[in-house]
Design a protein around this nucleic acid. Structure first.
Lengths: 192, 192
DNA sequence: CGATTTGATCTATCTTAGCAGATCAAGTCG
DNA sequence: CGACTTGATCTGCTAAGATAGATCAAATCG
């Protein structure tokens, strides 16, 4: 299935409704008149690319051009992600798996700070290029964590995982200089 | 990183060039005037959604709206699929090529400090996960550099490349926290 | 070298997106 | 029941996308 005007617009509408936003609320967010949003959603307007991007961003969507051959794979990701609006995934399945396990642990023991730190660590690791050995180390630590029993911030397994993954992250991050904060902040990512 | 007008259009241009189509050939395929394609590719037109879809289809691309949280996963697919236009692999041949060209330039003009900075930038970029669009941008800058003529630190092409690649590196590096310096500094990294 | 191709730029014209609001019917809320 | 919200539709206006070509300089080809 390929996406035409109507399909793209329908995704926008569905996303707006999923977020329980009215057209007026989206109008306020995106800076587009409510009447215009109505016209767009009803197919009465062949909107411009910049407007599409604006509305999409207000709905936490990104516009992507996908080679047709890869469309099924991409649709697979969109389809099997929980509600497509929640749930973070990475393209390293190991990272996604690790985050799931850590999420479960953290959910069951919200007071254990180390679990939150671990989640953050693993997320950051997912932004770096990982070797198979790196992935193995991450998986090993997460496996130990899942077999840990009742977690505690001073539990040796948790402390060991923090140390190991922290060290790994630091090693890899050393290859990338810290990003300076320019006076003009170029990336205005999700500041709503 | 999110896709703006310019990024989307750049993907179209890259796809056209990858298929070795001229603007006139694409015009014939998509039914869009060549002059209009030129204007679009040069950012002189905020094209309509229907036009974007038409051009994309002629280039075997599909337009998809992706929840922002799933963008990394989708980009992962685009990055690692062998069907990708650039033929992406585990290592980035584009980075290797770019470093080669920069090394030649730097070798011929050892006094140009900016070339050393560029080499460092490209190396660091190679440590981050890059999308096809990222690679396109890097290649574009390096191509301009190789056609620059006699380089100078204040040459606009060199300055532009530094700006563009620096900005790209900073955007990507934001996803990775800086590696902290522990009180017990085991490895006193002398950052050159 | 002439012929051809390419991307960019131009003119003129038509169509419509986008905007600012107003207003309406229908539904919901307290 | 009145007040309020919502999505749809309307008017009028401006600016720009899209089109049809023409034309140019630069590059490429045979």
């Amino acid at each position: 299935m390929s996406y035409g005007n109507g399909e793209i617009i329908e995704v926008l509408r569905a996303a707006r409704q999923a977020r329980q936003l009215s057209q007026r609320a989206l109008s306020a967010k995106a800076g587009v008149p409510q009447s215009h949003i109505s016209k767009i959603e009803n197919g009465g307007s062949d909107i411009r690319l910049s407007s599409l991007i604006e509305l999409a961003r207000a709905l936490e969507l990104e516009l992507v051009l996908v080679p047709r051959r890869l469309l099924p794979a991409v649709q697979g990701i969109l389809r099997y992600s929980p509600a497509q609006l929640t749930g973070s995934r990475d393209s390293y399945p190991e990272i996604a798996d690790a985050l799931k396990i850590l999420a479960l642990l953290a959910e069951g023991h919200p007071s254990i700070q180390g679990l939150g730190e671990l989640q953050q660590l693993v997320r950051e690791l997912g932004n770096l290029r990982l070797s198979p050995l790196d992935l193995t180390r991450i998986r090993t630590q997460v496996t130990k964590l899942s077999e840990m029993g009742v977690p505690a911030d001073d539990h040796p397994v948790l402390a060991g995982a923090l140390r190991t993954l922290s060290s790994l992250r630091n090693q890899l991050a050393h290859a990338v200089s810290p990003a300076p904060k320019p006076a003009y902040s170029l990336d205005d990512d999700d500041d709503d």
